[in-house]
């Protein structure tokens, strides 16, 4: 396979999906941690760090979702998914949607300083963190981290 064949970057052996996924996972979890220690805005530097980590996390979900969907189409010819593959797809899309929702809540609060960050963001942030972890766990199984050496 030619190194500049798009499939070389999407299929197993050199799949970018499993590389890129580390960015939203790390950025999102870091953002939640910064948000937790920002003390309801009493530490604006940490609140800003949370916001920007969240922004980049949300944006970085786009190439992750795109490469995952393309790998599905190219590797498995878009066959109807079931089992762990289907769970991974559904959870991944739900996690991405939640990350964007949390980002939107933060963005709205940042644009309207008179409106503080709502408390209801916490269950959403924690649910997204749980979904991100679960999706990553399944993705790890699918990518073969348990492969015997």
């Amino acid at each position: 396979m030619h190194p500049f064949d798009p499939r070389a970057a999407l299929l197993a052996k050199h799949a970018q999906h499993v590389v890129l996924i580390h960015f939203p996972i790390a950025l999102y979890l870091t953002a939640v941690a910064f948000d937790a220690v920002s003390g309801r805005g009493r530490r604006p530097a940490l609140a800003a760090a949370a916001y920007w980590n969240l922004a980049v996390a949300a944006v970085s979900t786009l190439p992750v979702v795109a490469t995952g969907l393309l790998a599905w189409q190219l590797q498995l010819a878009g066959q109807r998914l079931k089992g762990v593959l289907l769970q991974h797809l559904v959870l991944g899309l739900a996690a991405s949607a939640l990350v964007w929702t949390v980002f939107w809540i933060h963005r709205r609060a940042r644009r309207t300083p008179e409106r503080p960050l709502p408390v209801y963001r916490w269950p959403l942030e924690l649910a997204a963190a749980a979904l991100v972890a679960l999706t990553g766990h399944l993705g790890g199984f699918l990518s073969g981290v348990n492969l015997p050496q």
Binding site: L76, Q79, L81, G83
Partner: peptide
Amino acid sequence: DDIPHTVVSNDHVLFKSKALDT
């Protein structure tokens, strides 16, 4: 196995299964 696998000939032509679930 508990996760899906495929069976594909090295030439990608002779035989190629879909993702096989458990």
